[in-house]
Design a protein around this nucleic acid. Structure first.
Length: 290
DNA sequence: ATGTCCACAACATGTGGA
C-alpha cells in the first residue's frame, strides 16, 4: 500500500501536474492540502478523473483558502471532516478546512494543513499552537497505533530540516514552542518515517518559489508522514518525490511517499531474514596508486 | 533588498497569503 501526501498549492492550477503524477506514482492513498477549492469545485476539477482511476475521495474545502482531500482505492470509511475539538479562526465558529481523515484498509489516515503561524507571537501563531494541541488530543483519543498522520505540518521538526537554522532565527516553523507542540503529537506514539529512514540526510519537501531556492536545494522539511506502532513495522520505503517539484508550473511542495508491506493477516510466525547480498565492487574503481 | 506563485476582484494592476 502506497500512501502519499502533497500540498498542491491550488489544485486547479495543478491539474496538469497532478493527474500525470497520479498515474505515474499510482498511490493507493493520497492526502492533498491547499486545494483552494470548495467541494463542488473539487468535484468539477478532478472528480471524473478520480472516479475513472478507481479512487474514492473525500474533500473538505472552503473555496479561496485551505482545502484538504483524501483519495483512496483501498477503502475510505468513517470519513471525518476536521477533528473533535478543532479550534476556529478568527473566532470559535469559523473552523477552517484544514483536516480530513478516514479509515483506509484498516488504518486511520489524516490529511492535515496545519496553520502557518505567520509571525511569532501573532494571533495566528497562537491559533497554530492551539490547533496542534487539539490535534494531539484527538489523535490520542482515537488511539494512535493504527494511524498515519500526513500533511503540511508547517514546522521543521529539527535544525536538520532547514537549509540554514540561522536564516530562520526568530521566524515561525522552527521555534522551540512550535517544535514542542509537534513533539506532543508525535509523542502520542508516532514515528516520523522519512527522518527515521534518512537520519542525518539533507531531505526537504518545500522550497520557496523565489530566488532559485529549489535549484540551490535551499528548502525545508515541513511535510511529514507520522506512523503509529502498527504501521511502522510495515514501512518498506519512505521518500520525497523531488521530481514533482521540477518542470513547468510545479507546486512549491513536493509529495512525500511511504510504501507499506501488505498487512499481515494474523500471526505470520518468525520472519526469515533475506540472503546476504554483498555489495560488488566494480573493477578499476580504486584510486590510482602513487 | 529582492527575486514567485496563486486567488480574488475586476479588467489594470493591487492586495493578501504563503
Amino acid at each position: 500500500m502506497r500512501v502519499a501526501t502533497w500540498n498542491v498549492n491550488s489544485l486547479s492550477a495543478r491539474v496538469p501536474r497532478f493527474l500525470p503524477w497520479l498515474e505515474q506514482r499510482r498511490p493507493d492513498v493520497v492526502c492533498l492540502q491547499e486545494t483552494k477549492l470548495d467541494d463542488a469545485g473539487f468535484a468539477d476539477a478532478v472528480g471524473a478523473d478520480l472516479d475513472a482511476l478507481g479512487y474514492e475521495w473525500a474533500h473538505h474545502g472552503q473555496g479561496q483558502w485551505n482545502g484538504v482531500a483524501l483519495l483512496s482505492r483501498v477503502g475510505l470509511d468513517d470519513v471525518e471532516k476536521a477533528f473533535p475539538g478543532t479550534p476556529g479562526y478568527p473566532d470559535p465558529e469559523s473552523v477552517e478546512a484544514r483536516a480530513v481523515s478516514a479509515v483506509c484498509d484498516g488504518v486511520r489516515v489524516y490529511s492535515l494543513y496545519v496553520p502557518n503561524g505567520r509571525e511569532v507571537g501573532s494571533d495566528h501563531y497562537d491559533y497554530k499552537l492551539t490547533w496542534l494541541k487539539a490535534l494531539r488530543d484527538a489523535v490520542l483519543s482515537a488511539g494512535p497505533s493504527s494511524t498515519i498522520v500526513c500533511g503540511d505540518i508547517n514546522i521543521a521538526p529539527a535544525d536538520d530540516d532547514v537549509f540554514d537554522p540561522a536564516a530562520f532565527a526568530g521566524h515561525t516553523h522552527v521555534t522551540d514552542v512550535e517544535r514542542a507542540a509537534l513533539a506532543a503529537v508525535v509523542d502520542t506514539g508516532l514515528v516520523d518515517v522519512i527522518r527515521a529512514r534518512w537520519p542525518g540526510e539533507r531531505v526537504f519537501s518545500y522550497w520557496d518559489y523565489r530566488a532559485g531556492m529549489f535549484h540551490k536545494d535551499l528548502g525545508m522539511r515541513i511535510d511529514l508522514i507520522l506512523a503509529g506502532a502498527d504501521v511502522v513495522p510495515r514501512v518498506a520505503a519512505a521518500f520525497v518525490d523531488r521530481q514533482a517539484r521540477k518542470g513547468t508550473k510545479p507546486s512549491d511542495h513536493a509529495p512525500v511517499i511511504v510504501d507499506l508491506d501488505t498487512a499481515p493477516d494474523g500471526d505470520i510466525g518468525p520472519v526469515v531474514p533475506p540472503p546476504s547480498n554483498p555489495v560488488k565492487r566494480k573493477g578499476g574503481a580504486r584510486l590510482p596508486q602513487a
